Simulated assay, not measured.
Amino acid sequence: MQKTPLTLAAASLAAILSLAACNNEADTLVANGPADPDAQTVAEAPPVTLPPALTASRTYRCKDNSLAYIDFFADGTSADVRAEKTGPATRLTAPTKGEPFVAEGYKLTGDSTTVTLEQPGKPSQSCKA
């Protein structure tokens, strides 16, 4: 039983000595850091506008029994419409808050529970969440 503590002590000492031998170079600290080569470009860049937050993402069953996936954004002037859950989205925009969302061939009116959706090649129809 006496050999176990001695073995642990020897193993610990060996680990400490092996770690102490690592990185013998001195650390160099620079007060202001290296010069940024892109500092001028970043300073002259226009401000970044973040996209609007998502306020509602709903699945709608339309009158012709098809599904429409619609995401409404917090700015009140944009919405994304998809015909398939993982399909590509079409961005619809409204000139001002409260007006219909439109894009080429699309028109969307309503709120997050009931909408009227017009899509290319389909008649205008009512859809419910």
Score class of each variant (00 low, 15 high):
L92C: 12
P88L: 13
T41A: 15
A79W: 00
G98P: 01
T41D: 10
A31Q: 07
P34A: 15
A129L: 12
S78Y: 04
P47H: 05
M1K: 05
T90V: 15
T116Y: 03
T41R: 09
A94T: 10
P46D: 03
N24M: 06
D111R: 06
Q125Y: 02
L54H: 08
C22S: 10
K63Q: 15
T93G: 05
P51Y: 08
T114W: 05
A103W: 00
G110N: 04
T109K: 06
D71N: 14
T90C: 14
A79C: 07
T116C: 06
E104L: 12
R91N: 15
V48I: 09
P46A: 13
K122D: 03
R61T: 15
L19S: 10
A89M: 07
L8Q: 03
D64I: 08
G33Y: 02
C62H: 04
K122G: 01
G110W: 00
G87N: 11
N32V: 10
Q2E: 10
L6D: 05
T4F: 13
P95V: 11
T96Q: 11
F72K: 01
K3D: 13
Q2T: 07
P46E: 05
A129M: 07
G105F: 00
K107D: 07
Q125F: 01
L6W: 02
L50S: 09
Q119G: 04
L92S: 03
K63G: 15
A14I: 02
L6R: 04
R82S: 15
T55L: 09
S66T: 10
G76A: 06
K128S: 14
S57G: 12
D36T: 12
S112Q: 12
G121N: 06
F101P: 00
A26P: 06
G105C: 05
F101S: 00
G98F: 06
P5H: 04
D27A: 15
A15H: 00
E104Y: 06
I70K: 00
G76C: 05
S124D: 04
T59D: 11
D71A: 12
L67D: 07
A31G: 08
E99T: 14
S124E: 08
G33K: 06
G76Q: 01
S112W: 09
G105M: 06
A10M: 11
A68Y: 01
A11Y: 03
Y106I: 12
A31Y: 04
T4N: 08
L117Q: 02
S66Y: 08
A35K: 09
E99M: 13
A35F: 09
